[in-house]
C-alpha cells in the first residue's frame, strides 16, 4: 500500500483516485473523486459519504463545492507541478473561511521542502512526489521554531504575542 504523511506520521494510504466519467458508478472502497463528479453525483455520494472524498484542481475553489463541505472526510488539493502555488491559498480558504476540519491532503507533486508552508496553511496530509522518502521527509515539517504571520497553524501573529 502506498505511504503518505498524515498528522506528522507515515501511514498506509487506502484512498484511491480512479479516473471517473461523471456518469460512471462509484467504485468500491475509499475513493477521491473530481469536483465535476462530486457535484454531478451528490445523491449517490450522500449514501456512502464516509468513503468518498474530493480532489480539487488548482483552478477549483471551495465556493464551487456542492453539498455540505464540512462533512467530507478527505479533501485533496492537487499540485500538478510543485511550483504551482494556488493550492496554498485553496487550503487556507478551506480551513479559515469554510471551517473545514477533516483531512486536508496535498497531492500531485508537492516536495519535501514545501512541508512547512503546506502545514502552515492547513494541510495535515501529504502525498509527496514519488522520489521522496516520507520517513526522511518528516524532518522538514518543523524547519522553523516560530513564524511572523497569521496562518492556520498560528492564528495569532507574532506581534500580538510579543510584549
Amino acid at each position: 500500500m502506498p505511504k503518505i504523511i498524515k498528522d506528522a506520521a507515515v501511514i498506509d494510504d487506502s484512498w484511491q483516485m480512479p479516473e471517473l466519467e461523471t456518469t460512471s458508478d462509484l467504485p468500491e472502497g475509499q475513493v477521491l473523486v473530481s469536483l465535476e463528479y462530486w457535484n454531478a453525483n451528490q445523491e449517490d455520494i450522500s449514501e456512502v459519504a464516509d468513503r468518498v472524498g474530493l480532489v480539487l484542481e488548482p483552478t477549483e475553489t471551495p465556493d464551487q463545492i456542492e453539498g455540505d463541505l464540512k462533512a467530507i472526510p478527505v479533501i485533496a488539493v492537487n499540485f500538478p507541478i510543485f511550483a504551482d502555488g494556488r493550492g496554498f491559498s485553496i487550503g487556507r480558504l478551506l480551513r479559515e473561511r469554510y471551517g473545514y476540519e477533516g483531512e486536508l491532503r496535498a497531492v500531485g507533486s508537492p516536495i519535501r521542502d514545501q512541508l512547512t508552508y503546506l502545514s502552515r496553511v492547513g494541510f495535515n496530509a501529504f502525498q509527496l512526489a514519488e522520489h521522496y522518502n516520507p520517513e526522511e521527509a518528516l524532518a522538514s515539517l518543523n524547519d522553523f521554531s516560530d513564524s511572523y504571520q497569521v496562518a492556520v497553524d498560528q492564528p495569532v501573529p507574532l506581534f500580538r504575542r510579543k510584549s
Binding site: 510543485f82 502555488g85 496554498f88 487556507r92 508552508y117 513564524s147 511572523y148 504571520q149 496562518a151
Partner: peptide, 11 residues
Amino acid sequence: QWATFHPEFAF
C-alpha cells in the same frame, strides 16, 4: 516581517 516566509505566497 509579514512577507518573510509568508507560507501562502512563496510560490
